[in-house]
Computed example of a mutant assay.
Amino acid sequence: MGKPTRWVTETKPGHSQWYIDRFRGLAAEGADLAGEARLLDALVPPGARILDAGTGTGRVAAALAARGHTVVGVDADPLLIEAARTDHPGPRFLVADLAELDLAAQGEPEPFDAAVIAGNVMVFVAPGTERDVVARVAAHVRPDGLMVVGFDTRRGYPLTDLDADAVAAGLRVEHRFATWDLRPWRDDAEWAVTVLRKPL
């Protein structure tokens, strides 16, 4: 593992367990936790191979697997990965630092049709590693594949930086929305969902 993520340095002790308990509680209440997965499902062919980068407790990966996709979920937090494996059999879950991501070394050499980075992952990576994260995730996506990135625009990672990091990784911005349910983008939106494509 490389530099400690903000998930480690900017949260209180016990935060990971709180997060696990929160999403288990939301699932038990019947909350809609599959919005990101619905969007990805609409963008890829049936039975696609999808990378859930920063999978957390695995909710997006599980929803995609339930829709017939082959999913690998990756997170730097071993406690979150343990919860994902417990709660969501089906996807393969791996502990890995996104800034140094090398899934071939963990037995996943095949490229992905798409990658998703949801749930504020980009604002919780280690400071200064955002460009590395975008590049390493993009390196695992096949040519003409997609990368969909969503995060709170008020949390310290400007969209201009995302766009520059995407270009540096060989990606192009294809769409931008204000929500995962495709509400139109506006400059004062508090959330951004960006669809990036890796050219052929």
Rank of each mutant, 00 (worst) to 15 (best):
M122E: 02
V74W: 01
W191E: 04
D152G: 14
L101Y: 09
G170I: 01
V71N: 08
R92I: 07
M122F: 13
T160W: 12
Y157M: 10
L182R: 15
H69A: 08
I81A: 13
G150I: 01
R59W: 10
M122A: 05
A27I: 10
G73D: 10
I117F: 11
A139L: 08
P13V: 07
G35F: 07
A61P: 12
D132V: 07
A164C: 11
P91K: 01
A42R: 12
P143V: 03
R85T: 14
P199T: 00
D41V: 00
G14C: 06
V74H: 04
M122N: 09
G156S: 13
M122T: 09
D75V: 04
A126L: 00
F112W: 11
L98I: 02
P46C: 07
V173T: 09
G145R: 01
T179L: 09
A126C: 04
P199L: 02
A99E: 10
V149C: 04
D187V: 05
D87V: 02
T11C: 12
I117G: 13
R67C: 13
L51D: 05
D181Y: 13
L80H: 04
R24N: 13
A28D: 15
V195I: 10
L43H: 02
G145T: 07
T153W: 11
G54V: 00
A126G: 03
D165T: 04
D188T: 10
A53C: 12
W185P: 06
P4Y: 07
P91C: 03
